[in-house]
Amino acid sequence: MQFKLIINGKTLKGEITIEAVDAAEAEKFFKQYANDNGIDGEWTYDDATKTFTVTE
């Protein structure tokens, strides 16, 4: 399945899409990606669109 991350950071904005087995695997990848890029904010997930959003 495809999952999307929308980044609304103070210094980094954009979107990335990955293939993952389930939402838990996608969330783990996205949170590591955000951590690696210094993004720390509020997370939301929309199951209907398979979209995670992080907002700083």
Rank of each mutant, 00 (worst) to 15 (best):
M1W: 07
M1D: 11
M1K: 07
Q2F: 12
Q2R: 11
K4I: 08
L5C: 02
L5E: 00
I6R: 10
I6P: 00
I7F: 13
I7V: 10
I7G: 02
N8D: 08
N8A: 07
N8V: 06
N8F: 11
G9I: 09
G9W: 13
K10S: 12
K10L: 05
K10N: 04
K10M: 04
T11R: 03
T11Q: 08
T11K: 04
T11I: 05
L12E: 06
L12K: 11
L12S: 15
L12Y: 10
K13C: 03
K13V: 05
K13N: 13
G14Y: 07
E15P: 04
E15H: 09
I16K: 14
I16Q: 04
I16C: 03
T17H: 14
T17Y: 12
T17K: 15
T17C: 02
I18A: 11
I18H: 08
E19I: 08
E19V: 02
E19W: 05
E19G: 02
V21G: 10
V21S: 12
V21C: 03
V21R: 06
V21K: 14
V21W: 07
V21Q: 11
V21D: 11
D22F: 11
D22Q: 13
A23R: 14
A23K: 14
A24L: 08
A24P: 05
A24R: 02
E25D: 13
E25A: 10
A26R: 00
A26I: 01
A26E: 00
A26F: 00
E27V: 15
E27P: 00
E27Q: 15
K28G: 06
K28H: 07
F29L: 06
F30P: 00
F30A: 15
K31H: 10
K31D: 02
K31S: 08
K31L: 04
Q32D: 06
Q32T: 08
Q32L: 10
Y33G: 01
Y33E: 01
Y33F: 06
Y33A: 04
A34G: 15
A34P: 00
A34H: 01
A34C: 02
A34Y: 09
N35T: 06
N35S: 09
N35R: 12
N35K: 12
D36R: 13
D36Y: 12
D36Q: 10
N37Q: 13
N37V: 05
G38I: 14
G38R: 14
I39C: 02
I39E: 02
I39D: 01
D40I: 11
D40Q: 15
D40N: 13
D40E: 05
G41C: 01
G41H: 01
G41L: 03
G41W: 09
E42Y: 15
E42K: 15
E42I: 09
E42C: 08
E42H: 09
W43T: 01
W43H: 01
T44L: 10
T44E: 11
T44R: 14
T44Y: 11
T44N: 13
Y45G: 01
Y45C: 01
Y45Q: 02
Y45M: 04
D46Q: 10
D46C: 03
D46Y: 12
D46P: 01
D47L: 08
D47T: 13
D47G: 07
D47F: 08
D47E: 15
A48H: 12
A48M: 06
A48G: 11
T49A: 12
T49G: 09
T49F: 09
T49D: 10
T49N: 06
T49E: 15
K50F: 09
K50P: 01
K50I: 07
T51G: 03
T51W: 06
T51V: 13
T51Q: 05
F52E: 00
F52P: 00
F52C: 01
F52M: 07
F52A: 01
T53N: 07
T53D: 02
V54C: 03
V54R: 00
V54E: 00
V54N: 01
T55R: 15
T55G: 04
T55N: 11
T55K: 15
E56N: 10
E56T: 13
E56I: 10
E56C: 05
